[in-house]
């Protein structure tokens, strides 16, 4: 592995100062489950690695604040998947967190790291989109709240400004009952990078939010206000027509070796139908 310097700031202010001082030569280290691979293969060559795991502002765990669930940036997937509030109120996120890598990976990988990598295949991206999450970022100018749908640009690129650090992800508690689900396609049942990810949430008004990933440069959120997808008696053709609109934003790369575009697009439809069915079923069960 290339040589680099290591810094472990004790405060957010210190971390921001380090980021400012080193600019593009610095990389933030959270769980390290992606960064260390890249440091080893040479695709990331920072001069300084800034470990943010001991910054109190990022370590708040999972807490409720003003009708929102706030997940501190250093919170690992294991804790998210196990949290009773996440499981009950943000089921799709719990499901997504529980399929990120193996147990060992989930014990290290953080939610903030997952979204900051901005991998189109990131499992937690799609549930955050359907739950309308907000990314909280601290920067030289103070705190900034970025709606999650405005956060992703393309693989490895977000709208985070230079010098900013994600401190938390906030999830607004839904007003009424909702049903949600997260699904994915992989090449085996054991842990694998997904060739399609899809989350959906339906609420009592019949509004359906669907987010899907790994089929384009960034995950896509589509909201169906028509109520057709959630309508148990709507004809199949009508639902299929809506789903075609929903998935119009998919543009899988032909270069991927994980699955062909044809298969990904077909699976998007299969996963969509299945996730909606699961979400409706969950809502019905309360």
């Amino acid at each position: 592995m290339y040589a680099f310097a290591y810094e472990r700031p004790a405060t957010l202010a210190e971390a921001l100062a380090l980021l400012e001082a080193h600019g593009p030569d610095a990389r933030l280290l959270a769980g390290g489950t992606d960064l260390i691979i890249r440091l080893r293969d040479g695709s990331a060559r920072p001069a300084v690695v800034i470990d943010v795991k001991r910054i109190p502002e990022l370590c708040g765990g999972i807490r409720e604040e003003d009708g929102r669930l706030v997940i501190g940036a250093s919170t690992v997937m294991t804790d998210i998947a196990a949290d009773a509030r996440v499981r009950r109120r943000f089921t799709a996120l719990a499901e997504a967190a529980s399929v990120v890598g193996s147990v060992q990976i989930r014990n290290r990988a953080t939610l903030a790291g997952n979204i900051c990598n901005a991998s189109p295949a990131a499992d937690t991206a799609t549930p955050l989109l359907v739950y309308d999450a907000t990314v909280v970022a601290a920067g030289p100018g103070g705190l900034r709240r970025i709606p999650i749908d405005d956060f992703f640009v393309r693989s490895g690129v977000t709208t985070l400004a230079p010098g900013e650090i994600v401190t938390a992800v906030e999830l607004p508690f839904p007003d009424g009952p909702i049903g949600a689900a997260h699904t994915r396609r992989t090449r085996r049942r054991g842990h694998d990078l997904a060739s399609v990810t899809l989350s959906c949430a339906v609420d009592a008004t019949g509004r359906t939010r669907i987010a899907y990933g790994s089929v384009g440069p960034r995950p896509v959120l589509v909201v169906d206000e028509s109520g057709i997808l959630a309508d148990p008696v709507a004809p199949a053709e009508a639902k299929a027509a809506v789903l075609e609109t929903v998935f119009a934003g998919a543009s899988p790369s032909p270069r991927s070796m994980r699955a062909s575009p044809e298969y990904r697009l077909a699976m998007l439809r299969v996963l969509g139908a299945r996730a909606i069915a699961t979400a409706l079923d969950r809502m019905a069960r309360g």
Binding site: R187, R188, R189, G190, H191, D192, L193, M257, R258
Partner: peptide, 23 residues
Amino acid sequence: IYDDRGRIRNLGAIDYRIPTSMD
């Protein structure tokens, strides 16, 4: 999986899949 230049694209454990305890 080879590319058209004869290089193995899926070197290593990320994209060469073998059965896990769940398979």
